[in-house]
Design a protein around this nucleic acid. Structure first.
Lengths: 137, 137
DNA sequence: TTAAACTCTACTAATTTTATAGAATTAATT
DNA sequence: AATTAATTCTATAAAATTAGTAGAGTTTAA
């Protein structure tokens, strides 16, 4: 399941995607439109900024705007930024690979191969869902 | 990601699947073979029993054995038993449906449709991975 | 100078996860 | 009947994670 953070991030991105290109959106504006706790959203927008998904303008009349094209932001990207690996175990992950602490011999693991298959399929599906595809409904 | 519980459950089921049909396996035997903390495994095996995946024999010379055919136990089943919904949000789940607390109008939600698509695809993939398919490597 | 916004660090409360402890029960064997 | 070896059950605890809050600092436009 997605964390609230990831869900809120997606809702915020969807809000931004629906504004005019030139418009910068204040945090409070996004928070109210998407029913997200404002102080929590502040952190999330900063994370999205550090991930280069949104840009910001500081000071009065500042706010946030999409930095990437809507169809370059995928569900997989947001999942990885907020919730980490797509794979079901770290040993089956591309971007968050780690050995399992209880694993004796990874090459002998019966689970791993199956989980790599799952990761490949869900990753493909999650890369197909973009902010653009979601807005188009 | 899978919880340790779900991972241990899968490893335990794989161990049982590799024994002879008539053999009952003691908890300690499974725990050592699959490097799972024994007392933790006890709980997991009870959960698997309550889920009708394994059966048990009590008393001396007791232990656990597979109750279902190896190809009737899917990754989706075990995920649901230990980690709950396959879907990324409760509102997109079949078996664990719930409204999102922050959702104003579900029918208007841009996220939900995409997440239902993801759930359908990952579910199909996860139903394709069974204890039998994993053992066959 | 002021107002209105983003930025940053720290903290906290609640929940979930990952176990562990120990007593109770069951069944086979001696 | 007693012993042994196993499952079963309930309670507890420590650690990690999640969700959210607080408040001071910085930036920019008017």
């Amino acid at each position: 399941m997605l964390s609230h953070k990831a869900k809120y991030a997606l809702k915020a991105l969807l809000y931004l995607a629906q504004q005019e290109e030139t418009h910068v959106s204040r945090t409070i504006e996004i928070a109210e439109a998407a029913t997200i706790p404002k102080k929590f959203l502040e952190q999330i927008l900063l994370d999205l900024k550090r991930g280069h998904f949104v840009g910001s303008k500081q000071g009065k009349f500042g706010g946030y705007y999409l930095l990437k094209p809507k169809n370059d932001i995928t569900l997989a990207d947001i999942h990885r930024l907020f919730d980490g690996a797509i794979a079901l175990l770290p040993c089956a992950s591309l971007n968050f690979y780690e050995r399992c602490s209880d694993c004796v011999d990874e090459s002998e693991c019966l689970l791993r191969h199956g989980l790599i298959t799952i990761r490949e399929e869900t990753l493909k599906a999650m890369e197909g869902i973009t902010i653009a595809s979601l807005v188009k409904k």
